[in-house]
Structures are given as structure tokens and as C-alpha cells.
Simulated assay, not measured.
Amino acid sequence: MPAPRIVVLAGGVGGAKFVRGLRQHCRTVWPDGQGGTTALITVVVNTGDDLWLAGLRITPDLDSLLYALAGVNDTARGWGRAGESERVSGELTAYGVGWPWFTLGDLDLGTHIARTALLKQGLPLSAVVERLSARWPLGVRLVPATDDEVETHVLVHEDGEARELHFEEWWVRTRAKLAAERFVQAGAESAQPAPAVAPALAAADVVLLAPSNPVVSIGTILGVPGLRDALLATPAPIIGVSPIIGGSAVRGMADACLKAIGVATSADAVGRHYGARSSGGLLDGWLVDRSDAAVVEGLTADGIPSRAVPLWMHDDTASAAIAAEALALAER
């Protein structure tokens, strides 16, 4: 198989782990002789978590992927930069600016300041991401799902009143303990995919759905007007990796998000939520964990060819093995 053109739809930390593994696998199978790969990997990243805070444009999922691929992420916390200090956040809190429960590290703030400055100069987000990515040899191309400001909001009841919270406030401040009644993509009605998205999907040999949150990561990407159509128009096989193992979310609180849309927290329920491409859904194939092997036969009978493989992303080697299985299923 020649070096493929791969498009990945991904959210934050889980998506970053998967893409690191994919990059490692591609470097092994299709090396370029310089420590990289001849495979072309484009990652379409969720921007629904983005927000303005203290005058800065924050892009949590793009930054998680950027830092992880650059090897400068904080692996202990799972987010942010390694070796961080938080003096500036302490000063902001003292002045009553920003969210005291949403801590931004000093190195991280450097990224946000640079991004905001470039946006204020008139650059679209995709061009800004390209500028920031050029600092490190990432080995993949990061592309925001949209250059437009489309933010995920959550409708909840708090203290007896109906409220609409930014997703990050619901996720970080409340730890998703307030029942989500509905997710809203504020600004989506006038948005469109970033310019590089449709061409990348049209030219792809394989499209992979990372094991990211199916509601507020992958679902938010697909909610950008025109993006789902561009995905369905690709001639490439679309292979998904389950973010649910043994009835539990691999990371975060995806179960709270799935409950809000009436989908069970199980590998087969999420697979059926995405649907078989042969029946108008998305998937040409679906990977589940070995602990969920019992659902493979039923999913396959429903038009979603599935395989049970180890899905725990303990390290890059394990993630690379998962990526290899996804590509193998696509080739079949």
C-alpha cells in the first residue's frame, strides 16, 4: 500500500493520543528517511470548546493536539504545557478577571496571546493554527473544523433557573454534574467548514473518527454546516474508534453527554449513533475493545463491519497499534 492520505476527525486529549499513535505507525510503515513519514495526515479539530476569556481567544482542543504532537504537553495532568507556572492566572484572579476555576498556565497564555494577536491582525483561525504549528515539527497538519466562531453551549437548570452555559463552564466548573438538557452550537447558522476541510476529505484515502467525545467533539465537528456532507461525499472508507470501553467512557464525562441525546454509554450504541454508511450514516467500519467483543456480530449484521481489538491508549505504542488496526479495517 502506498503512503496514504489520511484525514482524522478529533477532539482534545483522546484525539491527541490517537493522532500521536497514528503518526508513530505511519513513521514506521511509510518512513521519509528523516524521522518523519510520507503519509499525509490532516487532523480536523473540534472548535466548539473555543471561547473568549480575559480578552483572549482560547482553543482548548487545538492546543491539546498542538502540545501533544510537539511533545510539550503535561502528561500528568493530561492537558496544558509541561513545566507550567500559574503566576499570571493568580494575578487575573486577584483582579477579578476571567474564571478562577479555569486556570491558564503562563506558557499556555503565551499561545493564547499570540493567537489573539494574529486574529486581531485579520488572519483566519486556520492560518493562525498553521503559524503556531510551524514552531514544531508536528508531522501532521492541524485544521480547525471552521474558521468561524461556533461555540458549544449547554442548556441546564441551576438553582432552579434555566441557564445556558458555555461548554467549558459546564465541563470544568460543574464537572457535568448539572444534567445537560440540550447542546447548542451558538453561531453555527452562519458558519462554514474551514477552507482546507473539504479538499482534504475529497482527496483522502482513509478517514478516521478518533475515540473522542461523540457528542461535543465529533458531533460538534459534524454540526458545522456543510461538513457532514463533505464527509459523506468522500470516496474514502470511514472508520471509527469507540470512545467507550466496557460501558464506560475512556476519558472525561462522555456518558453525561450521551445521556442528553438519548444514547446509551456503550460501544455498540455509539456505533449505531454514527450509523452505517450504507444506510445513510457515517461508518464503513468500527473498532471496539476486546471487552466489547460480544457486540461485533450484531453491529456487522447492521451494516457496520466491526472488529474487537485492545483500545486502551496507555502509551504511543498502544495507540499506534490501534491506528494500525483502523487502517487495516479500512483496507479491507
Rank of each mutant, 00 (worst) to 15 (best):
P2L: 01
V8D: 10
L9R: 02
A10K: 03
G11N: 12
G12P: 06
G14A: 15
G15C: 12
F18K: 04
V19A: 08
G21K: 01
L22C: 07
Q24K: 09
W30N: 01
P31W: 12
G33K: 06
L40R: 14
V44K: 05
N46V: 05
G48P: 13
G55V: 01
L56T: 01
S64E: 04
L66C: 11
L69Y: 08
N73R: 12
D74L: 02
G83L: 05
E91H: 10
G98Y: 14
T103M: 05
L104Q: 07
D106S: 04
D108F: 03
G110K: 02
I113M: 13
I113H: 11
I113T: 13
T116K: 02
A117Y: 07
Q121W: 13
A127G: 03
R131Y: 10
R135G: 15
L138P: 07
G139F: 10
P144G: 10
P144D: 07
A145L: 12
A145Q: 14
T146S: 15
T146N: 09
D148L: 06
A162V: 02
E164F: 01
H166P: 08
F167H: 09
W170R: 04
W171C: 08
W171A: 10
V172R: 00
R173Y: 09
T174Y: 14
T174V: 10
T174Q: 09
L178I: 05
G187S: 10
Q192I: 00
A194K: 06
P199I: 10
P199S: 02
V206T: 11
T220F: 00
L222D: 02
V224G: 03
G226Q: 04
T234A: 15
A236W: 13
S242Q: 07
G252N: 05
D255N: 12
A256I: 00
L258E: 09
G262T: 13
A264W: 08
A267Q: 01
D268V: 00
D268W: 08
S279W: 00
G281S: 04
L282T: 04
V288E: 06
D289P: 06
R290I: 12
S291H: 08
A293Y: 14
L299H: 07
D302C: 02
D302H: 08
I304F: 10
L311S: 06
H314Q: 14
H314L: 13
T317S: 15
A320I: 00
A321M: 03
I322V: 15
A323T: 02
